[in-house]
């Protein structure tokens, strides 16, 4: 039982990481109609900026701030110089251009930081693990990730539901052309929004820094999974991204944790483990295909 609870917590924690990435991606996807393959690069940039500053200053908080701001700033520059020219193009051009950006950012990071992964220490106040209840121990840092994800989700909800910016975001998701026709400075809105999405990706990178290895190519590893989340949740919907992220996080974790045992009932140990590992890797993609077949626009589509 305690194993089940711990695995569920792991699933939720993965879900929150995915949510941070997916929220930014879905906003950009839904409102500007841009497929940004380079979203993973922003995650990587956030992590690298954070790792570098943390090693120079020794302060986790300053480093976290630096990671957020760097990702946000680079996101806005990217929007201003490149993405802006792609709004009117079809998805194909966007895919190609942002793929080019991935190549560039990855290799630039190699030039700046080398190929060896960077190391970030977990800050002292988040180290260790605590006893939650019964015999369930859980690392403090992972609880912090869940908390940060939860705060971001609430913050985003308030931003979208209660502020003028949020109103524009909702209007933009529902009918982009109408917002433009009503005289809103859509260019500025887009730049700000892109920066916000980039910052969310940067935040995910910052949170990931101390537990994963900060290395070139880390962005692409999560990018595809993030796309799965966005599509399952419904393109353009932040609520959908939240639901999708939780589902993907929990399903992926549970399959990895419990599928081998299920397979062991049917066949010999080593074969079962290897086969189950393969099937659990396919799991989220099967889930996505299933969701799209039943609800072609995703679970909670933003419009229509």
């Amino acid at each position: 039982m305690s194993l089940l609870i711990e695995q569920a917590l792991n699933g939720v924690q993965l879900g929150f990481m995915l949510f941070l990435l997916a929220a930014g991606l879905t906003l950009i996807f839904g409102i500007m109609g841009v497929i940004n393959l380079a979203h993973g690069s922003l995650y990587m940039i956030g992590a690298f900026a954070m790792a570098w500053v943390a090693n120079v200053t020794g302060s986790f908080l300053i480093a976290a701030l630096a990671g957020l701001l760097t990702a946000g700033a680079i996101g806005m520059l990217m929007e201003y110089f490149i993405i802006r020219k792609l709004y009117t193009r079809d998805h194909l051009d966007q895919v190609l251009a942002t793929f080019g950006l991935i190549l560039f950012f990855n290799q630039l990071t190699v030039l700046l930081f080398g190929r060896q992964p960077l190391f970030v220490q977990i800050p002292g106040f988040l180290e260790g693990s605590i006893l939650l209840f019964g015999d369930v121990r859980y690392p403090v840092y992972r609880i912090a990730i869940i908390a940060a994800g939860l705060l971001t989700a609430i913050g985003l909800y308030l931003l979208i539901a209660r502020t003028r910016l949020g109103m524009l975001i909702r209007a933009g998701a529902a009918n982009r052309d109408m917002v433009r026709a009503l005289g809103v400075d859509i260019r500025l809105l887009y730049t700000v929004l892109f920066g916000l999405g980039a910052m969310l990706a940067g935040l995910a990178g910052v949170m990931a820094g101390p537990i994963l290895s900060v290395q070139v190519g880390m962005g692409e590893q999560v990018l595809i999974l993030t796309f799965v989340v966005v599509v399952i949740g419904g393109v353009g919907s932040v609520r959908g991204a939240f639901v999708g992220a939780m589902i993907v996080g929990v399903v992926d974790t549970m399959l990895r944790a419990f599928l081998p045992q299920a397979f062991r009932q049917l066949m010999a140990g080593p074969d079962a483990d290897a086969l189950a590992a393969g099937f659990s890797a396919m799991g989220v993609y099967m889930l996505m295909a299933f969701v799209l077949l039943v609800k072609p626009k995703g679970l909670l589509p933003a419009h229509g």
Binding site: F29, V231, V235, G278, M282, Y285, A289
Partner: peptide
Amino acid sequence: VQFIMITLAFAQMLFFFFVAL
């Protein structure tokens, strides 16, 4: 966009299938 993603999902499924093969 959903078509782009579902074709991607099926391809990834086959990818992991061959990895497990």
